[in-house]
């Protein structure tokens, strides 16, 4: 993921994000959802907008896994549309995919590649 052109933006401290839950950060006019998937010891970042009804809500959604391959996913709190946290692909119905961002944790700081 990391390449020379990646610009790392300091989003928040790791302690700002509850375990197995999400928060939203403001980056310019963008809203980015950050997920601390503590159960998997993984972090993910996606757009905060749910494409289904255009609601700024994914960061308030529930995390989970789907299928035998245990695909990490988030469910929008409005209508439970689910999206892969890895690829952004919609896993329920045919909503368009959401944008995902590179993310890294260093010294208890969370950085998003923008």
């Amino acid at each position: 993921m990391e390449n020379t052109s990646t610009n790392w933006f300091l989003a928040c401290a790791t302690t700002d994000v509850p375990e197995n839950s999400g928060v939203c950060v403001q980056y310019g006019n963008e809203q980015i959802a950050i997920f601390n998937f503590a159960r998997r010891n993984e972090w993910f970042a996606t757009q905060n907008l749910c494409p289904h009804k255009q609601q700024m809500a994914l960061s308030r959604g529930m995390l989970g896994s789907a299928g035998a391959a245990s695909e990490p996913k988030v469910a929008c709190p409005f209508h439970k549309k689910t999206f892969s946290l890895r690829t952004g692909e919609c896993l329920s119905g045919d909503e368009c995919a959401i944008k995902t961002y590179p993310i890294k944790v260093e010294n208890e700081q969370v950085f998003i590649g923008v």
């Binding site: 998937f37 159960r39 998997r40 959604g61 529930m62 995390l63 989970g64 896994s65 789907a66 245990s70 990490p72 996913k73 469910a75 439970k80 689910t82």
Partner: peptide, 19 residues
Amino acid sequence: YNEVLDNYGSGDGCEVCKP
């Protein structure tokens, strides 16, 4: 929830079983 999932479930849970 984590205890329940570890003891009686599989995977990482979802928006159905968590509530």
